[in-house]
């Protein structure tokens, strides 16, 4: 059933791309359509609250890029000022308004031309800035792009969930699972009586867990931890896509996790050992992720008491538990 759901999502996503491409081509080939669209959109924008103009689904770099392009398109179409104010349909009023419009047109046209020229250059500047940012991001995201050529990190299985839950079972406070996937670890924690919630970047991945009533949310670990007040969590679990973070991001994540946990709170790291990577994975993910030993080193350096425990899993073989002092 999950495969059917994924296939349906991918199908709609493909159709939407085709629609956007066709819409783009139609605008390019028919300038009259652009004018008509602008008139209709302006009428529409008047009744749409500004706050509704939020793109909710920017959960991947591709989405972010598409969103930026879409917003630039909106800026472009809305930046053109038109001096032909509507005059309405009531006869007497229309005539008066028509006269006022004729009288003021020469002056408004003069102003509008200057503002339109300014807007035109401003939009071009935004586009060129967007392209420069895209180039910079391309460089900064090299690891992420290369990571796209290897399989995604698999879901935690039930035994791993149980093992993590055992380590945090005595937590008397909320526990956040960063990069929770479908929620196996959250589910095990909840069964153990822990108030656990999870976050993951992918809306699709958490769907099944959400359907089962787990508290799983769409967010990056950074976004989520950033919202949590100092010392508010009893524990943090770092797992799954944490394996695919570079050193700077990992260091930031550790600091954020330590900030969020209470003085005696715990951080559990459940990731595969980078030293066991082989084949294309080893080459493409070079410099990404840490071995359990290095996790332990970094956490101990930040003043935690660290324990390594063996785990008999197919990928994850060592769990790192750090207790803040």
């Amino acid at each position: 059933m999950q495969d059917d759901a994924t296939a349906a999502r991918e199908y709609v996503s493909r159709i939407q791309e085709e629609i956007q491409t066709e819409a783009h081509q139609r605008r390019e080939s028919n300038p009259a359509l652009v004018i008509q669209e602008r008139e209709i959109s302006q009428a529409w924008t008047r009744s749409v609250p500004g706050a509704a103009a939020v793109n909710w689904d920017t959960d991947s770099p591709a989405d972010l890029k598409a969103n930026a392009e879409h917003l630039l398109g909106c800026v472009d179409s809305l930046s053109l000022l038109d001096v032909d104010a509507p005059v309405g349909s009531r006869r007497g009023v229309r005539q008066v308004k028509n006269t006022v419009r004729r009288l003021t047109r020469w002056y408004l046209r003069y102003l509008a031309d200057q503002i339109n020229a300014f807007n035109h250059f401003l939009v071009n500047l935004l586009r060129s800035t967007e392209q420069r940012i895209a180039r910079l991001e391309g460089g900064a995201r090299a690891a992420e792009i290369l990571g796209g050529f290897v399989d995604p990190v698999p879901e935690a299985d039930a035994p791993l969930g149980e093992a993590v839950a055992d380590l945090l079972a005595r937590c008397d406070g909320p526990v956040a699972v960063a990069s929770c996937g479908g929620g196996q670890i959250v589910s095990a924690l909840v069964r153990a009586g822990v108030a656990a919630h999870g976050v993951d970047e992918s809306a699709g991945v958490i769907s099944d867990g959400v359907d089962e009533g787990l508290d799983l949310r769409v967010a990056t670990p950074f976004e989520h931890l950033d919202r949590i007040a100092d010392g508010s969590l009893a524990g943090v679990v770092l797992t799954r896509s944490v394996e695919r973070l570079g050193p700077v991001e990992l260091s930031t994540l550790i600091d954020e996790a330590l900030r969020c946990v209470e003085p005696s709170g715990r951080i559990v790291v459940a990731v595969a050992d980078v030293l066991t990577r082989s084949g294309p994975e080893a080459e493409l993910l070079r410099g990404v992720g840490l071995s359990p030993g290095t996790w332990a080193h970094l956490l101990a350096n930040r003043g935690c008491v660290v324990e390594l425990s063996e785990f008999d899993g197919s990928r994850v073989t060592t769990l790192v538990t750090a207790q803040r002092q």
């Binding site: 349906a8 199908y11 809306a203």
Partner: peptide, 9 residues
Amino acid sequence: CAQSGGGLW
């Protein structure tokens, strides 16, 4: 629509 694959926007 995006989650179900049941509609367009």
